[in-house]
């Protein structure tokens, strides 16, 4: 047995109904590990936001979470349009979401800034027309 737990999930683009599945599952594991509820909340809020980003913008994506006694590292790797200007995307209120997505209550331009607020480290790499890779890290103790 190793000192890390790895969890993997798949996300389908445009499947808003099942967005949030990974955050629910990861929440339960963190609760089993007796992680502080406030830390769990930050992780779950950030991950849910990131999941919705993939569903709203990309065609499909994969999530992998690695949990150690020190921290949790979550990687969301998607195939999609990519982000043209990451700095712009980090600005509150900036959104490229389609009107259809906005009608569903998503796409307010708070996604990435909200993620950043809730995690300790955030790294975004993106290639236009290929996809985006978001890596977020939160300390657990």
């Amino acid at each position: 047995m190793s000192n890390a737990i790895t969890l993997n999930y798949h996300i389908e683009g445009s499947d808003f109904i099942n967005a949030g599945n990974a955050s629910s599952q990861i929440k339960k594991v963190l609760q089993q590990l007796n992680v502080d509820p406030k830390t769990i909340k930050r992780i779950v809020v950030a991950l849910y936001e990131a999941e919705v980003n993939v569903v709203a913008h990309a065609y499909k994506g994969d999530i992998s979470a690695e949990i150690t006694t020190e921290d949790i590292t979550i990687t969301l790797d998607d195939e999609g349009p990519g982000i043209v200007d990451i700095d712009m995307a980090m600005t509150e209120g900036y959104s490229t979401a389609s009107p259809k997505v906005r009608e569903m209550g998503f796409g307010a331009g708070m996604g990435l800034p909200n993620i950043k607020r809730n995690v300790d480290e955030l790294n975004i790499q993106s290639e236009v027309k290929v996809g985006t890779k978001v890596v977020m890290k939160v300390k657990l103790s």
């Binding site: 047995m1 190793s2 000192n3 890390a4 737990i5 339960k28 594991v29 609760q31 089993q32 590990l33 007796n34 992680v35 509820p37 949990i67 006694t69 657990l140 103790s141």
Partner: peptide, 21 residues
Amino acid sequence: KPRSMYKLDDNMLEAMRKIQE
């Protein structure tokens, strides 16, 4: 105060082992 029913162990490493099991 919170009283989480899910925790498998107070010790995180031990809880991790239990999750894997």
